[in-house]
Design a protein around this nucleic acid. Structure first.
Ligand code: SF4
Ligand code: SF4
Lengths: 141, 141
DNA sequence: CCATAATCGGAGTATATAGTCCGAATTAAA
DNA sequence: TTTAATTCGGACTATATACTCCGATTATGG
């Protein structure tokens, strides 16, 4: 399948984190349950989430009734944070046409048009927090 | 290396076509020469251009002093035309978060922000012709 | 007519990403 | 204390994309 801007791993990470936020008051959530509800491979989402533990985005808990929880307030967690950790920021830096030698000193017609689009994408991710995805859960306060 | 929106093949196709437009009055251009000037693998750009011959974007000429030329006026050739041929339009249709089951009937916070960005990208490609990339060549008229 | 220079087509290899499997370590609960 | 449920880590396989190689075909120009 074809991705748009992010790697598949990054997409899964986003989905997994949104799921954890949605269920943040239910204690540890196992990879098994996440995989079932999101219809993703258990082993793959498990590995993906594990890689986020190092970055203090989520916490893991081994053993019986273990699983994953968010390590931060979803209010202080932007989508951009996650994207940067998984995919880096090359998406926001590279030439959309793939020209490596172009120094943009005499920019092509695309350059001035692509810049604002790229910036809008970045701002969208930066200004969207994980918490914004849970209107239902939010009403539980 | 990492691409932004398009596949590597698509990036090379765009570069190749822009190069052909730039040299449209020099007759047939061999894959060898294109590869040298763009610093791309000869065999790969050759195959990529070959695949565009079927779509009447470029013409090919075998034999000695053969090579490739544009099949159309670069004025009537948008970047979008080329992108759609190589990569299809899934970039402009798919969910940026990769959620397959989401019907957008109760759209997430990203949905309303991503729509305009995607549309801007599309319009940028649609409204940019191959001819716009040759201010120097254009002055030869 | 012949040598040379090019595309064409098909098959092959390389690499990165995606995804799987399993056994060990860990912990909670029975 | 035992059992069951879970993450963890490493190694493995699968797949798609990127890229190469070569022989056949075609055409030009001497
Ligand atoms: S000027 Fe054009 S080719 Fe150069 S970096 Fe900008 S978009 Fe890419
Ligand atoms: S609502 Fe959100 S998840 Fe659904 S298609 Fe739109 S961007 Fe994707």
């Amino acid at each position: 399948m074809m991705t748009v801007l992010f790697s598949r791993k990054c997409e899964y990470a986003l989905q997994g984190i949104l799921y954890l936020a949605e269920n943040q008051f239910k204690g540890n959530i196992s990879a098994e349950q996440i995989a079932t509800d999101l219809d993703i491979s258990r082993d793959f989402i498990s590995k993906t989430l594990q890689s986020l533990v190092k970055d203090d985005i989520i916490q893991s808990h081994r053993g019986k009734s273990g699983g994953f929880t968010l390590a931060k307030d979803p209010d202080s967690m932007s989508l951009l944070d996650i994207v940067l950790i998984i995919d880096g920021n090359s998406v926001f830096e590279s030439c959309v046409l793939g020209l490596p030698t172009c120094g943009a000193d005499s920019p092509c017609p695309v350059h001035d048009k692509w810049g604002p689009i790229r910036e809008a994408s970045r701002k969208m991710l930066e200004n969207t927090t994980v918490a914004q995805f849970q209107p239902i859960t939010g009403s539980e306060y």
